[in-house]
Computed example of a mutant assay.
Amino acid sequence: MNHILELAERLAQTHDLPDDELLVLIRRRNPGASSFLKAEARALCDRIYGKEIYLRGLIEFTNFCKNDCYYCGIRKSNRRAERYRLTQEEVLACCDMGYPLGFRTFVLQGGEDPWFTDERLCKLVAAIKKRYPDCAVTLSVGERSRESYQRLFDAGADRYLLRHETATESHYKKLHPPELSLKNRLSCLQALRDIGYQTGCGFMVGSPFQTSEDLVRDLRFLKEFQPHMVGIGPYLSQRDTPFRAEPNGSGELTLFLLSVIRLLLPEVLLPATTALGTLLPRGREEGILCGANVVMPNLSPEDARGKYLLYDNKLSSGAEAAESVFLLRESLENIGYRAVAAKGDSLVS
């Protein structure tokens, strides 16, 4: 036990560990080491970002997707999914609702929907930026060409979220159909960073077939890539996917890894995700206390929220709903933090 605590202390001091020691830390983690890392991660985040938690308004604008990822509830083969696309007017209405509530970042998230060509998506981004020039626009719409990413950036998109899902090629193949590749996913991430986006990546914790070695490779990839934001959350099953019978990921391990990531990447923006809040009763608050500093309430129209089902039982009401932001502010104040109306740019260079 003393050895594990020593590893935790060294991670907090040096912001890195060799892969073999990261593996030991994950495999042999214990309550003492977890509590130490939680406290160190929170203190580090407080020194850099203070007691401010950044709000992002999530707009799930399409659940059409051309891909067939084995874990995802909006995969193209799921004929039970109720498909929808929001119009530009509907998306702008979401922004109109979110702005007076204090949202200064709008996150457009959707499946890889071919209907949203560069022309249509650029027009949407430009419309948001024209109406709200003091706000950031974040896109999370999957793999596109470098030229597409450049056009969207030129139209006004500031940030892009693209989870790498796993940094282990053999594991990636077990989660995705043959036409998708880790090589292309990583190429997309590099293109986004090169173009000038604030770039986010991340992975599922406890996805089918995942090993501790896979998690170490994920952490090493994050350390080397130096993303501006990292989104991790527990794997949660969805009833209409090939992985419907697979067990959900661990909330405890997810919280542990949030602390590890904060210490590996001190300036990173780190969300407490909806998936964590879905799995654990106070998952969002626990995530904040483990080093997270971003929350992403849902600004989507209410009828759309029930159709964007990446996994079962997804939270979309209460403090997860943007219109109930007062509940979120209160829950954050109860643990000593405050939600701020700010773009909340990453400090990562």
Rank of each mutant, 00 (worst) to 15 (best):
E6G: 10
L7A: 04
L7Q: 01
R10W: 06
V24R: 09
L25I: 02
I26T: 09
I26D: 12
R27D: 05
R27Q: 11
R29S: 07
F36R: 10
R47W: 10
Y49F: 14
Y54E: 05
G57C: 00
I59K: 14
E60K: 04
R80E: 08
R80Y: 00
E82I: 14
R83T: 02
Y84V: 00
T87H: 02
T87G: 13
E89M: 03
V91R: 09
A93R: 14
D96Q: 15
D96M: 13
D96E: 15
G102F: 05
F103H: 01
F103R: 00
T105M: 10
F106A: 03
E112M: 07
E112A: 06
C122E: 13
C122T: 08
L124W: 12
A126N: 06
R131I: 03
C135W: 02
C135T: 05
T138S: 15
T138A: 15
G142C: 06
G142I: 00
Y149P: 10
Y149D: 09
Q150G: 09
A157I: 02
R159M: 10
R159Y: 10
L161R: 01
E165D: 08
T168E: 03
E169A: 14
E169F: 06
H171V: 08
L175R: 09
H176C: 01
S181Y: 05
N184Q: 12
R185G: 01
S187W: 11
L189Q: 01
Q190T: 10
A191Y: 12
I195F: 06
Y197G: 00
Q198M: 07
C201P: 12
V205A: 05
G206M: 05
P208N: 04
V216C: 12
F221C: 12
Q226H: 11
P227L: 08
P227I: 01
M229R: 15
P234A: 11
Y235M: 03
S237N: 10
Q238T: 03
Q238L: 09
R239N: 00
D240C: 01
P242Q: 04
F243Q: 11
A245M: 04
E246G: 08
G251K: 12
L257N: 05
S259W: 01
I261S: 12
L270G: 07
L276E: 02
R282E: 15
R282P: 11
G287C: 08
I288Q: 06
L289C: 08
A292N: 08
V295H: 08
N298E: 04
D303S: 14
A304H: 07
L309M: 13
L309K: 02
K314L: 11
V325R: 05
R329C: 03
Y337N: 08
V348W: 12
S349G: 15
